[in-house]
Amino acid sequence: MVHQLSLVSSIAHGSYVQTVSTLQAFTGMLSPQPIATYTLLTKPHEVFKPKFEPGKVNQIEQYYMKCITTWSDGSEFDLASAVIKENGSSNVFSGRLFHAEDESVQRIWTLQISDIPIAGKNQACSAQTIYESTLIHTHTNVKSEENKIDAMDVDLEHKDKSDVKGDTKEKEEDKKEEDKKEEDKKEEDKKEEDKKEEDKKEEEKVEKKNDEVKHSEVNLEDGAETGSGHKDSFLQFLEDLGYETISQYWIKGIRFFHGDIVIEIFKVLVRDDEVTEPKEEGKIALKLLDESNTFQIRTYINIAKSTDIDLINQGTKELLRLQEFLKNLFKLEIPDRMFMDSRVQVRK
């Protein structure tokens, strides 16, 4: 359980170098730590219809869950230079996550669910409780063929839903931007196509494998076979747990540490669907969520216990001091609490 105190801000691309220099001097960290995460946004795939009994308050909620892992662009994606689309194609790529070759290493996933930030008029900073648990290994007895069909089913189901979703005002957990909601819908579509593509790939692979067995050559695909088993096992685990994926995004940035405060400067990337043929095989083209090249800034303190009032008060003070100190560089503000709400709205 993490009790997180945070303040957010954003800077224009042009201020990046100055901001980084200032923070380097301020924190004494000459080389900030690079951060690169990939997040799958998931939602319970079942409808929760609790029985309402008079006199009984039902406090059970359904939550969106984030599944976070690391990613490497494996390339020269430079934060300091603006990402500009040339001839309609960007030059940022991510390795295909569920691609078999990527699976020589077992992927680690952190499952994370956060509460809505604490309400109140006199909040000096946003305070929310985050629960997370890290999955280091998955295994399933569901065969990959069966599983493939399953994944597709989920996808189809999801398609029907996404239409409905436009009408029902569901709030995505959103720590970035107000306009993200619109983007989210786009992202979802992307996700679907992404999945379908993956499925297609799978099929191709299976076919290829069959061929190879016939030729009875050195079976290089063997590694890929267990790899695809792994791929399926995480998605299978997620599905059995009761969740389905609805969206995805990548984060790339740097972070500084100042005492207990973490200062993160990052950009959010989403899948670029306009690029049909990526330059490299097995890569996904990405684009910025916010094409103005704005950087997001998040400063936060993690406190292990939400009951530790002393630490919370002290942390709040430290954040406010930082806010005051950096006010000429960027203005740290409290993010809108409603956009940080990760509860699934109950449909009446």
């Binding site: 359980m1 993490v2 997180q4 730590q33 690079p34 951060i35 690169a36 995460t37 319970p44 079942e46 929760f48 059970i60 909620e61 359904q62 939550y63 869950m65 976070i68 892992t69 690391t70 680690i108 952190t110 499952l111 669910i113 985050i130 629960y131 997370e132 648990s133 890290t134 999955l135 747990l241 009761g242 984060i251 972070r255 993160e264 993690n302 292990a304």
Partner: peptide, 27 residues
């Protein structure tokens, strides 16, 4: 690298606690 690249806060909960706290609607 999972911690250093920012994917976890390093304040993980045991999974049974996670399920009992936040997945009550499911389990």
């Amino acid at each position: 690298s999972h911690l250093h690249k920012g994917a976890t806060t390093d304040l993980n909960d045991p999974f049974d606690f996670f399920v009992a706290q936040k997945l009550q609607s499911l389990w």
